[in-house]
Design a protein around this nucleic acid. Sequence first.
DNA 1: ATTTTATATCGCAAATATACGATAAAAAAG
DNA 2: CTTTTTTATCGTATATTTGCGATATAAAAT
Lengths: 113, 113
Amino acid sequence: MAINRKLEFATDEIALADLAKAISHPARIAILKILAQQQSCICGEIVEGLPLAQATVSQHLKELKAVGLIKGTIEGKTSCYCINWEIFNQFIARFGVFADLAKNESCQSQSCC
Amino acid sequence: MAINRKLEFATDEIALADLAKAISHPARIAILKILAQQQSCICGEIVEGLPLAQATVSQHLKELKAVGLIKGTIEGKTSCYCINWEIFNQFIARFGVFADLAKNESCQSQSCC
DNA sequence: ATTTTATATCGCAAATATACGATAAAAAAG
DNA sequence: CTTTTTTATCGTATATTTGCGATATAAAAT
């Protein structure tokens, strides 16, 4: 793009977009699924479960961590990751904004097109 | 990327990622907000409400329409857009998958890191 | 002390996304 | 019929994302 207009939007719009971007890749959806159903969240297991190179998976984990959707701690030689449910649930709750706006104007029921 | 690995993931993971990608830009979040609180969803009004050129807004609208999150109909000279709440609510409901996976393994409560 | 194992990071190539001017298309106004 | 208005699409420049080999780092094993 010629100019990055991102910062001309509202802070909460940028924040929600950033969270959505973090899960906008099937690999990162798959990672979240793996973490959701496992107690042991060792990085190596995630790599094995995905059709991607170790470096690529490490990068995807970094992105999820950057927005706070996952937490990671180093356990000796390995790294342990897991979902940060507090952030995750906050993220989902934010979608309520749209329904709230619609309710205030009583628009959701009467679709105009 | 050298090779696009997207198609090596599960269909539902790709679908959820595509929906997330559609809302992964503040302009598209802003568009959804405008549509949620307005009865008249005329394209021109959306353009006026955003810090972007008309061509750019039209492109963002196209992306939202492509994943089904919004509907659009041509009304004479103008175009009318509105949120497709059926798809929108389905999208939000899909996040339940993660909580379900976590519940099955009783992992959500006992965070491992 | 050296080697192995597990992850993270760097650097780069290729793919996508973003932004917008120019232009097309089509209805409405004059 | 010509002009204006409204929106979509094309072409293109630039920015960002994706993917991975190579390499760094650091703990564990030998």
